[in-house]
């Protein structure tokens, strides 16, 4: 034993030194390979003359594109607000004890989740073929108001209908799940305090359910932003259709599609940040540093624990 110790060089005291960290050669190799691919892609973007970056920058802030951008935003906003409002009603109907309400809500959700939004947009736009005039009156009684469907259905109203109704079906399911996630203990506590059903729903259940559904509503808003590009089939000059109108005149197809792409990315990034911000305000009410939200943006979706990760 003593012999052995003499032949080996003396080791330092284990308590005084730090172990060498674990090596990750695979991360280095994988990282390098990916960086090479990224470099090649960036080089392609920069050197490929067909991209015409000068054209892109020329049209980036052109009035036509900005007007289209405005319509896209307006459409997203109206469709979401309308869709959520209908969705709340549908969710409450779905949870009501009245079987007729339950069934009606179920059928609505089934229908509008099942029909593709593009088909709906075309269908709503051609509604006048199905119902030429609309009138408001007492059923089987006098007519109070009537109008031609052709006058009511513009590309914009058809787009709003199609997008909002699709959204209402998804929103209804989200909100229903949110309401059901509020524990029965909450409604029981409200009941023992003498609160009515409406008071309990409005003051106790919905505020808590809302907190649960903010992340999925955020996701839906971003989806809606992208879905609005479908309205180009109705010749409604949104962001995409504005770009299309320009390149059909100038044949600068790719640069204008790049313009639209950049704007969609900018908008969806902003919406993601807004959603994160709202989520955090609702979670602890504390104002949040921008750096933390930005950091969360990059981590989102990687390990699925973004709320835990962003909290300081």
């Amino acid at each position: 034993m003593a012999q052995n110790l003499k032949t080996l060089p003396e080791r330092p005291d284990i308590h005084t030194i730090q172990p060498v960290p674990e090596r990750h050669p695979s991360r280095w190799i994988g990282g390098v390979v990916l960086l090479v691919i990224v470099f090649l892609f960036v080089r392609l973007l920069v050197t490929n003359e067909n991209l015409h970056w000068d054209v892109v920058s020329r049209y980036m802030f052109s009035p036509e594109i900005l007007a289209g951008l405005g319509r896209t935003l307006l459409l997203t906003f109206i469709a979401m607000v309308l869709g959520l409002a209908i969705g709340v009603v549908l969710a409450i109907m779905r949870l009501s004890q009245n079987p007729v309400f339950q069934m009606a809500s179920w059928v609505w959700i089934w229908f509008f989740r099942g029909v593709p939004p593009l088909v709906q947009l075309i269908f709503w736009y051609n509604l006048a073929l199905l119902i030429p005039t609309v009138s408001l009156g007492i059923p089987f009684g006098p007519q109070l108001w009537s109008a031609s469907m052709n006058a009511l259905i513009t590309p914009f109203s058809a787009a709003v209908l199609g997008l909002a109704l699709t959204e209402s079906a998804y929103a209804a399911e989200m909100i229903r799940a949110g309401i059901q996630a509020v524990s029965t203990g909450q409604t029981e506590a409200a009941a023992t305090l003498g609160m009515s059903k409406a008071q309990t729903l409005r003051r106790i259940v919905l505020p808590q359910a809302l907190k649960i559904v903010v992340p999925p509503i955020g996701n839906d808003t971003i989806s809606m932003l992208k879905f609005t590009s479908l309205v180009s089939v109705l010749a409604l000059p949104d962001l995409l259709y504005s770009a299309q109108m320009i390149y059909s005149r100038t044949y600068e197809t790719i640069p204008l599609l790049i313009v639209a792409t950049i704007w969609y990315l900018v908008l969806s990034t902003i919406l993601t940040l807004v959603e994160h911000y709202i989520e955090h305000r609702m979670n602890d009410g504390r104002p949040l540093q921008v750096t933390l939200i930005l950091a969360s943006l990059f981590r989102t979706g990687f390990w699925g624990a973004r709320r835990a990760e962003v909290s300081p």
Partner: peptide, 29 residues
């Protein structure tokens, strides 16, 4: 609900309203 007001109830799991402060929980009803 009108009758229940006269019978206060305290639960095993407290069931405070998590989105309201202690004071807001008390003044709500």
């Amino acid at each position: 609900a009108a009758q229940r007001q006269r019978m206060g109830m305290v639960f095993q799991s407290f069931n405070l309203f998590p989105h309201k402060t202690a004071l807001e929980n008390i003044i709500e009803a």
